[in-house]
Write a protein that binds this DNA or RNA. Structure first.
Lengths: 360, 360
DNA sequence: TCGCATAAAGTTATCGCTAACGCAACGCTC
DNA sequence: GAGCGTTGCGTTAGCGATAACTTTATGCGA
């Protein structure tokens, strides 16, 4: 295989000799070449069966030869609607929302809808800026993570007049349509699970960004449920940085130093739990015998680490697919509605206490 | 002939009373409200210091009150360029490209460039469709994973006349600018590492999609280097589906059944390796004593599983950042260039053979 | 006071496409 | 063969911004 790296971007141009200045072809140039009006070319694209087959074929050939790519800025400006769907997520790290985006975008593709992505990184100012930016492209719809947005964001989204799908969280007032689940219930389930398994001294650990409202809801659920059982969990969190194994390890060391009696740790994410378990190992604490660990997210590695991690599995692909469905439905005049998507507590070894000294 | 359109979208004028139908404000409506021409409002946005401060303030207030969001379809059509950057990736699962996208988009945001995302899922037909779709938005630049594209895609990208940044792979002819590394060298390094550690019977395992050219390059490097040492690796791959722990487990069982003598497994991705190690455990093979495992990707969990996984760590964030830099530079007239980004073989326990019976 | 540079706004002409309408040419019915 | 619906394509008028001018104040030196 010969690899030559000096490829001039432009010296291919086998058609137009004098292609010094690349001329991006327009509908009009296609029309001229074929000898019809621009509108006929437009029709050949949008409503092919209104154009004579023979003519249509000639038009298609011309478009192919000139490498015509329609200008959707013009199309969108002229027509009523674009085929953009704005997608706003709060994070792209790890697997948190990647697979939602994955299924969402591939489902939308079937309807010829194009994703415009924005990542707020849990920064509300950025969220406003990005939502504004996305709306300026006059998208057909917007899908956004969460239901807790700055007031201005809500105002903008509402006044845009397009379908707004809020994903991931459904516990609260919604702008239009929501698809997700109740995070407080997740926290409660985590607490219940640990208590049922005989754990008694709970800690919550992780990166709890101020604007990660979902994490706060889970924590609230955890506390509420624990208090019911007469337990007050220890909270150890960091604010600014995101979750990572290293953070988990650090927090595990810290929390067990300050509260040696802790026998169960709830992690804000699986990735943090990975580090927590490493930290526990370094401290000589056995999981699950000495300390139980439960997390949230069901990262792809959760079942592969030692011991396998008990965690919460949200059905991300379902959320992605249902969001795409909802977008299409709403665009076609369907009614707004809120859909709860199931999640599962996947009990693995990390919370499997051998002997339950006190029954749950 | 006088054409009279009964449904004047302008007869709301300033009578906001009858606001049953939401009216999306335009530059003109702001202008009217303030009592200036549309162009002045436009200037207040684009070149604020050409507008009297007092007037500018009134314009800003009006925009705020009406929740004005500029229509960039119009702006892009009229102006020379949009602030869209098309980003084309081959996968969104797991951590493969998520963090590239993450850094890329947040770096671009600093320059007010907006990401439009497309995911080809390793499907060349989809790649063509998506590239066409992205180009139809007249982006300022396109960043795309890989350097091996269908000819038509290359043709379209070249004839678009905008900067094209190819990411992740640099081993071959490039359209314009590339930022990545040589995957064949990665494969060679994997082989050398295993051989140096005393492993002698190598297997390559994973999902090897036909259009994942990078994986094939790594495999080629692996084979070439192994053959130099008189070793012929066993290849066991699946085509259609993507990599996952379950796949890894299945393949590990299979490969050790058919080739019991294997003492080292190279995995196409960390996620596959997670499953491979689980499979080995189930078979009673110790890692790294009986079988060494090396992978590619440096997933966030790689250092947390047991034993910690030896793997290749590409500098994704650097690639993301450099890609953003390159885009900005190229837009501002900089020259195309190819940049090699370092990767690292992170040696952990999964290839740490206690006794090296034969020196490397 | 005139002349001229400068500042601050208004005018006009696109950008490339689509929607709505216009209008031949044709086929069908009675 | 008059009437009328179809088919197939052309014409015209925007969509909402920006760029390039033009026009109208304003300041300032000679």
């Amino acid at each position: 295989m010969t690899i030559s790296t000096d490829s001039k971007p432009g010296d291919d141009a086998r058609g137009e000799k004098e292609n010094k200045e690349r001329v991006v072809p327009t509908l009009a140039s296609i029309a001229e070449r074929v000898g019809v009006s621009a509108n006929t070319v437009s029709r050949a694209l949008r409503a092919p069966n209104t154009v004579r087959p023979e003519l249509r074929k000639r038009i298609n050939i011309a478009m192919e030869e000139l490498n015509y790519v329609p200008n959707r800025l013009a199309g969108g400006l002229s027509g009523t609607r674009t085929d953009i769907v704005g997608v706003v997520v709060t994070s792209l790290y790890y697997s948190e929302f990647a697979s939602i985006i994955d299924t969402l975008q591939s489902s939308l593709l079937e309807h010829d809808l194009q994703v415009m992505l924005a990542n707020t990184r849990y920064n509300p100012d950025q969220e406003l800026k990005l939502v504004r930016s996305i709306l300026s492209w006059r998208p057909a719809a917007v899908a956004i993570i969460g239901i807790d947005h700055p007031p201005k964001v809500v105002e903008l989204l509402k006044s845009s007049g397009i379908p707004i799908i809020e994903m991931w969280d459904t516990s609260g007032p919604v702008i239009d349509t929501a698809i997700g689940f109740d995070h407080q219930a997740v926290g409660a389930a985590q607490a219940r699970h640990l208590i049922d398994r005989g754990y008694r001294t709970l800690a919550f650990v992780g990166s709890l960004r101020e604007n990660d409202r979902r994490a706060r809801k889970r924590l609230l659920g955890l506390e509420t449920e624990a208090v019911k059982a007469g337990i007050t969990p220890v909270i150890t969190c960091t604010e600014p940085i995101g979750g990572s194994p290293d953070l988990g390890e650090k927090l595990a060391l810290h929390v067990l130093q300050t509260h040696p009696g802790i026998d169960a740790i709830v992690c804000n994410s699986d990735v943090v739990a990975f580090g927590v378990m490493r930290g526990l190992r370094n401290l000589g604490r056995r999981v699950p015998e000495d300390v139980g660990v439960i997390a949230f997210g069901d990262n792809e590695a959760a079942a592969c680490i030692t011991p396998p991690l008990t965690t919460i599995r949200p059905d991300r692909e379902r959320i992605g697919r249902l969001t795409a469905d909802a977008i299409v439905a709403r665009i076609n005049g369907g009614e707004p509605q809120t859909t709860i998507v199931d999640w599962k507590l996947v009990a693995r070894e990390s919370t499997q206490r051998e002997a339950t000294d006190e029954g749950g």
